[in-house]
Design a protein around this nucleic acid. Sequence first.
DNA 1: ACGTGTTAGTAACACGTGTTAGTAATATAG
DNA 2: CTATATTACTAACACGTGTTACTAACACGT
Lengths: 347, 347
Amino acid sequence: MNIKRVTSQDVADAAGVSRTTVSLVLNNTPNAQISEETRQRVITTARSLGYVPDAAARALVSRRAQIIGLVMARSHYHIASDAFLPQTLEGLLDVAHQNGMRLLIDIVEPQHQKEAYLQLVRAKHIDGLILSGPRLDDEALTLLDDENFPIVLIGRLPGDRYYSVDVDNRSAARNAVEHLIKLGHRRIACITNASPEYSAAAERLAGYREALEACGLAYDQNLVRYGDFSSKSGYQQMKQIILSGAEFSAVFAASDEVAYGVNAALVEQDLHSPEKTALIGFDDLPMSAYINPPLTTVRVPATELARRAGNLLVQILEGEQPEQKVQLLETHLILRHSCNLGKSMLS
Amino acid sequence: MNIKRVTSQDVADAAGVSRTTVSLVLNNTPNAQISEETRQRVITTARSLGYVPDAAARALVSRRAQIIGLVMARSHYHIASDAFLPQTLEGLLDVAHQNGMRLLIDIVEPQHQKEAYLQLVRAKHIDGLILSGPRLDDEALTLLDDENFPIVLIGRLPGDRYYSVDVDNRSAARNAVEHLIKLGHRRIACITNASPEYSAAAERLAGYREALEACGLAYDQNLVRYGDFSSKSGYQQMKQIILSGAEFSAVFAASDEVAYGVNAALVEQDLHSPEKTALIGFDDLPMSAYINPPLTTVRVPATELARRAGNLLVQILEGEQPEQKVQLLETHLILRHSCNLGKSMLS
DNA sequence: ACGTGTTAGTAACACGTGTTAGTAATATAG
DNA sequence: CTATATTACTAACACGTGTTACTAACACGT
C-alpha cells in the first residue's frame, strides 16, 4: 500500500498549529515569534511523522532547486572511457553534501549543444552549472553567460570569460616533455588525449611543441597523432606511428588513459617501456601506479579541481562575486618506471 | 542584466490566449478543442520567446520530477576508484535522454543509510531509484520498498525482493577459476573486489570456493584476502599473501581494478604473469585489454546492465509491473595474455 | 423560432511550500 | 484607566504549471 506523503499541513494539523508556524519553526526563520513550547511540539511532530519538505514546492517558491549540474561536453560514447570522471564526482558530491545540495549529471553532445544547454537551464532543473572538459567551439555557452546563468569550468577557455578551475596544461605538458629531453630523447612522439576542439588537448599539444622549440628540436608532424579519450585510441594511434616507420625513443601521451593504449602498442611491437621507449602520461589516475610498468605521469588533482569548482559555484549562487576568475592548481611530475630504468617506484 | 524568465503567462499574453490554451497546445492534450490556427500561433510564440516550462512547477503539479536517481551504496572515498562508474553512467544517460528525464547521482554511506535514503526519496527529488552495488546489510532499502518507492538494483540481493539486473557473479567466478584449474593450477589465490557486505563480492568469493570444491581442491584461508574496490587494495592484499610465503601459481582477482594492483605486486616480487603466475580479473573494463599483460577477465556488460536497469525503472514508473524480477545478463570469459603464454590477444 | 450538439476557448482549482502583513491577547508604562 | 508595545500566532498571497468543469457562440435539425 502506498503510504500517503506527509505535507506541512499534516504536521500543522497534528501539532495544532498553522502551516505557517510549521514553516517558521522548521526553517528557523529569523524574528519569528514562536514560543519554545510550540516550537518543540512542531519539531517533535514533524519528526514522528517523518516529514520532509517537497523539493519541487520549495524550488518553485524559492527559485532555487538546490541542484548542481555537472555537464560534460562530449559525445555519448566517450563517457565510458572517462577514467577521470569518478574523481570529479567524488569532489562534487563532497561539495553538494556540505551544502545540502544534489548533483545532477548530463552530457551535451557537440551537435546538440545549444538546445541541450537551454533546456537544462531554462527548466530551472539546476541552480548552476559546472562544465567539465570545455570545447573551444562551444558557442552555446556564451548564451548562458549572457543570461547570467552561474557557470564554472573545470578546465579553461581562451579569454577567461568564465569562472574556471584548472591546471596549467601547457606548462605541465612542456615540463613533462622537457623531462624526456633531459633524459636525452630527441625524437619524441605525442598522442593527444582528445581532438583539438577540447581546450585541454590543444594546450597540452602546445606545451609539447613549446618544449621542443625551446630546445631547438624540430616539430615533426609524423610523430603526432590525435587520441580520442580512450585506451583504444591510444593503441591505434601509437600503432600507426610505429607502422609508419617514423623513429622515436620516447612518447608523451597526453592522458593516462591514452597512455595505457600507447603502452600496449609498444609492448606488442617489442618497443616496450622503459627498456626501449620512454613513456609519460598525464593525469595520474589512481591505477597508473599499478600498471606495468608504473606510469610516469603528470599528477592532476582531479578531486580537488572538482571540489574547488563546486565551492566556487556555491559562492556564486550565494550572491558573491569572487574576484579571481581563474584558479590554477598545481601539477607535479610523478616519476615512475615508464621512463627510467631504475627500480619500480610505487607512489 | 538578468533576463526575466519566460512563463506560460508570457506566452499566453503574447499569443492572445489564456494560459490554459498554452498548456493544452504545448502538451498536445488529448481531446483539447483548439483551432489549428490558434495552435500554430501558440507554438510559434512559445518558440520565439524561448519558453521552457519550469521543472519545479511541473513536478509539483504532476507528482513527477522526471529525474532518475542513481545511488551508490558505498563510502565516499570509494568513488574515485570506481572504474565501473563511467559505463554505468553512459547506460543510464542513454535511458534518461530517451525518456526526457534527468539523472541525479548520489552516494549513501553505510553509516548514514536510513537517513540519506529517506531524505532523498521523501523530498521527491527523484521519481525512482537505481541502486548500484547493493550491500547485504542494507536495511534502509526495505523501508523504501515498504513505501512502494520504485527501486531497481544493478546487482542483486538474496530473496530477489527487488527488481534487479545483474550477471551471475557466482557462476562466472566459478567458471573463471575452473579455467585456471583446467590450465593445471592447483594453488589459486583470491583477492576479492570488496568487503563481504557487498553482495557481488560475496557471490564471486562463493563461486571461487565452488570451483575449488567441485575439483576436490581444499579451500585455503591463507590464499584469500579482501580487496576494497581499488588497485591499491589489490596491490596491498596480494603483497601480503606473497610475503606470507603461501604458495600459489594463479590468482583470481574479483575485479579488474583490483587485478591491476595484484599485477603490480606480482611484477614487483618477480612473480609476473603470465610467465610465473596466471591472473584473471572480473569486469573487462575498457582498459583491461591494454594493460601489460592484457588481462584475462570476465566480461560484464556494464553499460548494458545500466541500460536495462534504467529501462526497467522507466517501465515501473509508467505503472507497469514487469513479471520478471531478475534479469541476468551473460558474462563471457575473455582470454588474454595474463593467464596463458600464447601471443598477445587484444580484443 | 427553439432545442440540442459541437467547437473553441477560459476561469478556477489544485499541487506544497515560504513570506509578509495582520490580529488578538497580554503586559507594561504613564 | 488608557494607550502603547510585545508576544504568539495565522490568513492570504505568491511561485508556475496541468486539469477539469464551465461558457459563449455557432451550426444544425425539427
